[in-house]
Amino acid sequence: MTETNTDIDVLQERLAEVREEVGKRIIGQRDVLERLLVCIIADGNALLESNPGLGKTTMVRTVAEVTGLDFSRVQNTPDLMPSDITGTEVIRDSGETRAFVFDKGPIFANIVLADEINRATPKTQAALLEAMQEKQVTAAGETYDLPRPFLVLATQNPVDQEGTYPLPEAQTDRFLLKLVLDYPAAEEERDIVNLYTGSGSGSAPPVETVVTRSEIRQIQSLAREMPIADDVRDRAIELVRATREAETVEFGASPRASMGLVLTAKARAFLRGRAHVSWEDVAEMAPPVLRHRILLDFRAEREGLTADDVIATLVDEV
């Protein structure tokens, strides 16, 4: 690695402070928070799925505050237009002259929360593709670079699908991770109720910024340099290739999944304060990296298998 061990240790301590600070406002969901931070470290996009009311928006907003990243939120609706996200040209009158000026949309932020992305039309969903992959926006023949780091965190609910537009495979593949939030445990739910209904205003507890934008960029660079043994890397690739040959899988994951699995394993190892990648990192990141990239066939549905079930079996076999 290019930095000294002291520098790396300090940055890893910063990440531990991020988790503690977010924990002041978010009770439970530790695995989801870890994987969300992995997504930021790996400089990727994430799709968050859960039933309503489980704190997806609050978690994303809190992470943005604690990491010092600019945040914007887009509420997706069927009448949302692509220009509502990317921006549009407007006429500016300076008194003496008139000129077209590009008025940047909410996508020009470090963290963009696309709430209920499947309620936007395919045309509007497609407006995010270039930003998610190329980190840029093209409008009126001009290309504008997005601020770095840049990531899209989109949410969708697995229920109430009436009037929605399911994301096509080409777009779901742009998401590095798919994170699934579950209901909190009884003790956690009690703590949540006490936190937000106790004495005081009932608003979210304050949090502090504990890491800077430049440090996030440095962390992203260092994570990519994280050493990974050849046999661990090859097993990760073998796991992805196994999804294309599994009997219950109709369509397997692409090489983009292989890259994503290795990169997120590196990010998790860095987040955990280690200096190398282990097979545990690969196994833990396999479900969020692969669950939205494989399509199960009728046999899996008949047997009641989910994508996570199939992935768990393949991890054990590999």
Rank of each mutant, 00 (worst) to 15 (best):
R299P: 00
R235S: 01
V277W: 04
R268W: 07
D309R: 07
F270W: 07
V232K: 09
E250F: 15
L48V: 12
R19Y: 01
E130K: 03
D79K: 12
V318Q: 11
V101M: 06
L167Q: 03
M59G: 09
S201K: 10
I41M: 08
A275F: 12
T306I: 01
A300C: 00
Y144P: 02
L195D: 05
N5G: 00
V193S: 09
P149W: 05
A114S: 15
A307N: 07
L80R: 04
E34W: 11
I237P: 03
A186P: 12
P184N: 13
V90S: 02
E134R: 05
T209F: 01
E187H: 10
V60P: 01
Q156H: 06
T138E: 12
G28E: 13
D79T: 14
V207G: 01
P288S: 14
D182I: 00
P106T: 10
R213A: 08
R268G: 03
F71I: 05
D103N: 11
D160T: 04
E3V: 12
S83N: 08
D316C: 10
E96Q: 07
F108G: 05
G28A: 13
T172N: 13
R244A: 12
V63S: 01
W279E: 09
L179P: 02
K178S: 15
A275V: 10
K266G: 05
L222V: 14
T172M: 15
N194R: 13
T164D: 04
G198M: 09
E162K: 13
E189R: 14
S278C: 07
D43H: 04
E17P: 00
E250L: 15
V277F: 05
T121Q: 01
V277T: 06
M132D: 06
R30N: 13
V10R: 07
Q125V: 10
G55H: 15
H276Y: 10
D160H: 02
I216Y: 03
T67W: 12
A269D: 13
A236I: 11
L47M: 07
E187M: 14
F150R: 06
E245L: 10
T58P: 01
D115Y: 11
M81S: 09
L15H: 02
R30C: 02
N51A: 13
T58D: 08
V211S: 01
Q156W: 06
P122W: 08
E225K: 06
Q218I: 07
I237T: 14
A229I: 10
T88D: 13
V318E: 12
E49T: 10
I216N: 02
L80M: 12
H276W: 10
Q125P: 09
A265M: 04
D31I: 11
F270R: 09
G141F: 11
P287H: 04
A269M: 01
P255A: 11
E21V: 04
E215T: 08
E89C: 00
S258A: 15
E250R: 15
E96Y: 06
G87Q: 04
P149A: 12
L222H: 12
L48Y: 01
C39K: 01
M1G: 04
E96W: 01
V137T: 11
R92Q: 07
V60Y: 03
P52W: 09
D173N: 14
T197R: 06
A267W: 01
M1C: 02
A139H: 10
T164H: 00
A257P: 14
A204Y: 08
W279I: 05
S278Y: 04
L181Y: 10
T138N: 08
T62N: 03
L128N: 05
